[in-house]
Amino acid sequence: QPDICKDYKETGFCGFGDSCKFLHD
């Protein structure tokens, strides 16, 4: 199970976008 993207979880934004290896839940 992939890890949750910390940036996306906390801020709702991730610089990696769809290529981020972490989950954007």
Rank of each mutant, 00 (worst) to 15 (best):
T11L: 09
D3N: 08
F16N: 15
F22E: 13
F16V: 07
D7P: 09
C5N: 02
D25L: 04
G12E: 13
C14G: 03
T11M: 15
C5V: 04
H24Q: 03
K6L: 08
G17H: 11
K6T: 07
S19R: 09
S19T: 10
K6H: 13
Q1F: 13
Y8M: 15
F16S: 12
Q1W: 01
G17Y: 07
L23R: 12
G17P: 04
I4V: 07
Q1M: 08
I4D: 08
D25K: 02
C20S: 02
G17Q: 14
C14P: 07
C14H: 02
E10G: 05
C5I: 02
K6W: 08
D18L: 05
C20P: 02
G15K: 12
C20A: 02
D18G: 07
K21F: 01
C14D: 07
I4W: 01
E10P: 10
Q1Y: 13
T11R: 12
E10N: 10
D18M: 15
E10Q: 05
L23Q: 11
C14E: 07
H24Y: 04
C14Q: 04
F22G: 08
S19F: 15
D7N: 01
K6Q: 12
D3A: 04
P2C: 08
C20K: 00
K9S: 12
F16L: 10
E10A: 13
D25N: 00
F13T: 10
K21T: 06
C14N: 04
P2S: 14
F13P: 03
I4R: 10
K21S: 04
D18C: 02
C5T: 03
I4C: 13
P2I: 15
C20V: 01
D25T: 07
H24K: 02
P2T: 15
K9W: 09
P2N: 14
D25S: 03
S19I: 04
G12W: 03
F16H: 14
Q1C: 14
D7S: 08
F22K: 13
F16W: 10
D25I: 01
C5M: 12
C20E: 05
C5E: 03
H24P: 01
K9A: 14
G12V: 01
D18E: 12
E10F: 02
G15S: 11
D7L: 03
Y8A: 12
C5W: 02
D3E: 05
D18R: 06
F13A: 11
D18T: 08
Y8S: 06
H24F: 00
F13Q: 09
K9M: 14
K9F: 11
G17W: 02
K9C: 10
E10Y: 00
S19P: 03
D18P: 11
Y8E: 13
F22W: 11
Q1P: 09
L23H: 12
K21L: 04
H24S: 01
Q1T: 13
S19N: 08
G17V: 01
F16T: 10
F16R: 13
D25Q: 11
K21G: 05
K21V: 02
D7E: 13
K6V: 14
Q1L: 07
H24G: 02
D18K: 09
Y8W: 12
H24E: 03
G12Q: 08
G12P: 03
K21Y: 03
D3C: 05
H24V: 00
F22T: 04
K9E: 12
G15V: 01
L23A: 10
Y8N: 06
D25V: 09
G15F: 10
D25R: 07
G15L: 10
F22N: 10
P2A: 13
G12F: 05
D25M: 13
T11W: 10
F22A: 09
D25P: 09
G12T: 10
C5D: 06
K21D: 02
G17A: 07
P2G: 15
K6G: 09
K9I: 13
G15C: 07
K6N: 07
Q1V: 15
Y8D: 05
F22I: 00
D7K: 03
G17S: 04
C20F: 01
G12I: 06
F22C: 05
S19H: 12
E10S: 07
T11N: 12
D7M: 15
G15D: 00
F22P: 03
D7Q: 14
K6P: 13
Y8C: 05
S19V: 05
F16A: 14
P2D: 14
Q1K: 04
F16Q: 13
K6R: 12
D3Q: 12
Y8I: 05
D7Y: 01
Q1R: 02
I4L: 11
F13G: 13
H24R: 02
Y8Q: 12
D18W: 00
S19Q: 11
F13H: 12
G12H: 07
I4K: 11
Y8F: 13
H24A: 00
G17I: 01
D3I: 04
Q1D: 14
G17M: 15
L23V: 06
L23N: 09
Y8L: 05
F16K: 12
P2F: 14
S19L: 00
L23M: 15
K6S: 09
D7T: 09
C5P: 01
L23K: 10
K6D: 13
C20I: 00
L23T: 06
K9D: 12
G12C: 02
C20D: 03
F13Y: 11
D25E: 09
D3L: 07
C5F: 01
D25F: 02
T11K: 14
T11A: 11
E10R: 06
I4Y: 11
F22L: 06
